[in-house]
Design a protein around this nucleic acid. Structure first.
Lengths: 190, 190
DNA sequence: ATTATTGTTGAACGGTCGTTCAAGAATGGC
DNA sequence: GCCATTCTTGAACGACCGTTCAACAATAAT
């Protein structure tokens, strides 16, 4: 019972993510979040608790979104290609060039709650697990030597595309990282 | 003439960098900068102008420092190795794991002055130029096909080492990125 | 010694920060 | 209709933000 909420939590989370994604945690004022969601401050606090929990809701939403995009339709070499090319495409297609919400949060580390920092760290582990699965699936039995180095190189390429995308790198440059990483992967796997 | 300054600008810049490097622009309060430099607010404002100029002084100091370390003693393949290994070593040796001040500034983009953003963008171009010079110097005449892709892959590896270093990646993981990138470079250059 | 100039000091400025509160409005259960 | 409960509203809280100011101290030139 009680008065029903006049807005959808889901819509609010989307608006929260929009702001945090472009301005970061410290750079986003709760009043900015109100403007984006169309709600009053007390309503957001009633729904989420405090600014940290608003951020975590937004982060979680971002993670669901990006993992949905990055998860490959088929595993193996095409899976590796899918992760890199999708990362590149999403980065270029974002006209605001916000990069990756998780990566942006790394810089805000000192201002984030311990729990948010754990989420950030786990997200990188999940990306590496995802890529490791694709690298391993690229071979019928055990992968050749240096597989873990190749996994980490691919993680590095993915991360840097996202970072340099926010830094204003050209689509040509970002696609070149993909090309370089895929060539390196193919040469190694051959 | 006039009363002489009671502190060295150089020492103050070092302290400013220390704070900005770990907390970022938005996360560093001018009062924090005072505590680090041991000066009063009005003294810092008299010496630097405003917070943005304090940040730019710190950024400039960081750029001189990092370029001094990254510039290779000899050009060519050993130069490529030097850039990657030095980046990795500096990242691991920093116990505070502050990563790269320039990369951290990318996340703070929206809160930075246009001039600071230009400095950030130019810094990435300078890193790419440095690596391109080393890649080209690795060959007596023109480098083989895909040289620019390799350059961008190396930039990506360097950037990601620094980013993941701040994100809390293990030394093993960071060294693995170096190993992966150097193997990829050697296989391509062979 | 006086003057002009610059740095230091400590306090203060208006503005914004994250957060909370009292009052009113809207619901389900009785 | 009335109660208990929940949400919304608008204003306010103290704390902190970047910045500035008037008063005082220290120097070089006259």
């Amino acid at each position: 019972m009680g008065r029903p909420r006049s807005f959808e939590i889901d819509d609010a989370e989307a608006a929260l993510l929009d702001v945090f994604w472009s301005k970061g945690y410290e750079g986003s004022a709760v009043r900015d979040l109100c403007a984006a969601t169309g709600q009053r401050q007390a309503s957001l606090y009633a729904a989420f608790g405090d600014k940290d929990q608003m951020f975590q809701a937004a982060l979680h939403r971002y993670l669901v979104w990006i993992e949905g995009h990055l998860t490959p339709p088929e595993n193996g070499r095409e899976g590796v290609r899918h992760v890199l090319e999708t990362t590149c495409r999403l980065t270029i297609e974002d006209r605001q060039r916000r990069g990756c919400a998780i990566i942006n949060a790394v810089a805000d580390r000192e201002n984030l709650s311990p729990r948010a920092n754990v989420t950030v760290q786990q997200s990188f582990e999940r990306l590496r697990d995802l890529l490791r699965r694709q690298v391993h699936a690229s071979f019928p039995s055990a992968p050749p030597a240096g597989a873990e180095d190749m996994v980490n190189l691919l993680v590095g390429a993915t991360v840097s595309i996202r970072l340099l995308g926010r830094a204003g790198a050209s689509p040509t440059e970002l696609r070149s990282i993909v090309a370089g990483a895929l060539s390196a992967f193919e040469r190694w796997a051959a």
